[in-house]
Design a protein around this nucleic acid. Structure first.
Lengths: 249, 249
DNA sequence: GCAAAAGTGTTCGTTTTACACCCATGT
DNA sequence: ACATGGGTGTAAAACGAACACTTTTGC
């Protein structure tokens, strides 16, 4: 059985040269209903979709979300959604907030708990989830029409990500296993929406001792090849606890 | 009607010379049920209390909480609870998180949204809420037995408060209208659990220009009387936006 | 040889830290 | 006159901001 009044919505962030992006979908209602374990849940979901045609409309896009099953832990359910959407386990996933305005969903009362996830672009080419009619990355400043208050949830996710990234080393989850110093700088610039000074940025990074030389360089680039780095899990774990300061005035 | 699967719980913080405290209560079930607007809600609440005798037990203490009415905004409902508990409106109130472990409440599935509030000790002597059998401030390291996962919620509230206080001027909500510099330093020391250097602390504070002279001194103290200050609402509003740095290494 | 991005140091002003003594008041 | 906490300045070290040129590579 499904808790009618509580849902979870996941904002999935990815990063590449074009900037910070969000993964959105349009749901295949029939596939979703087939995937449910019991009749009662299917009936409930059918009702939800009948009440909210926008969820399956062709103009509206949606976060990855769903109503929480009675027998599923909230955080675990957010992981389930993420796995359905991306096929990935072990993704960085963090709760944003509960969203509980009275009329955030028309005609019914649903409180949703938002999460955001950071996806490593090594896994950028998702196998299409079979629950999604379509699935697409959108640039943050070219978002399509979104259902309900999903734009609010995305904005709030971005705010949380910004706060998090300034004081904790989580930004690295958006990078591939090996990356260049320029890539990480541009990641911070995109997230915080601020140009930074390369020399000062690198000095700061160096002082943290978070990076180790990957022992490779870029290949076939029409300029001096950049060194690849990876991040040091031990130092990462320490900084995650202690915090760091990437605050820019 | 009440949403059976969603509740709100408020952690109410206060501060005085004995340190940081939390307001807890033991509920008067009969008074609570009498206070509800409709029969259906009363019946639901009765059932909840029958299932969870710990809620009215004499050994267990509880946060101020309740199930969210279907027709009440989540944040507004948290304010309602706070008003019931303290008689105060316009209190600093902030969402912590949604807590959604499977077995956080025995025998039923309830997801709770935690909030924390900061109470100015000018209002420390609360008129007893008529819904509470008893109501008491507890020192954070002398907490009584708590129902469900309320200890977890309190710990998480404290973590959030610590984070907030380092980068935003919210600590002042825990102080009376006029306060001394020593009081605010001891507030920060208690919240962050760290001794600070008085001269450096005051320099930092001075640079923010957040305080204005209240024009009074302590009376009848057996030592040099400290000056009272109040905080400057305009500067407060600006710093709330911009952030500040009270981080201590 | 040129276009394109990588990589690197120094200077200057500001901030942080560490630290110790005199002041005002009530008893 | 003494006990109690209030209030203050300075020097050294660390940090942050601003800034420009050389290197490597592919075409």
């Amino acid at each position: 059985m499904i808790l009618n009044s509580v849902s979870v919505d996941c904002v999935i962030f990815g990063f590449d040269k074009s900037g910070l992006r969000v993964l959105l979908n349009q749901i295949d209602k029939e596939a979703l209903i087939r995937s449910l374990p019991d009749q009662a849940s299917s009936d409930q979901i059918k009702q939800i979709y009948e009440r909210h045609p926008v969820l399956t409309g062709d103009n509206y896009w949606s976060l990855f979300g769903g109503h929480v099953p009675e027998e599923r832990d909230l955080d675990e359910f957010a992981k389930d959604l993420l796995f359905q959407a991306t096929g990935l386990n072990d993704v960085f996933l963090q709760q944003i907030n509960a969203f509980g305005s009275l009329h955030r969903v028309p005609y019914t009362r649903v409180i949703t708990v938002g999460y955001y996830a950071l996806i490593n672009p090594d896994y950028y080419d998702l196998k299409q989830s079979n629950l999604a009619k379509s699935l697409q990355w959108f640039n943050l400043n070219e978002l399509p029409l979104l259902c309900f208050d999903h734009d609010l949830i995305i904005r709030k996710a971005l705010t949380k990500l910004r706060q998090e990234v300034m004081y904790h080393p989580v930004g690295f989850h958006l990078l591939p296993e090996k990356f260049t110093l320029t890539e990480i700088q541009s990641l911070y610039e995109v997230i915080l929406n601020k140009k930074m000074d390369t020399r000062n940025f690198r000095k700061k990074l160096a002082k943290m001792e978070l990076l180790i030389d990957y022992g490779e360089k870029q290949q076939n680039v029409a300029h001096r090849a950049a060194k690849y780095y990876q991040f040091d899990i031990q130092v990462y774990e320490r900084l995650k606890m202690e915090g760091l300061n990437f605050r820019i005035e």
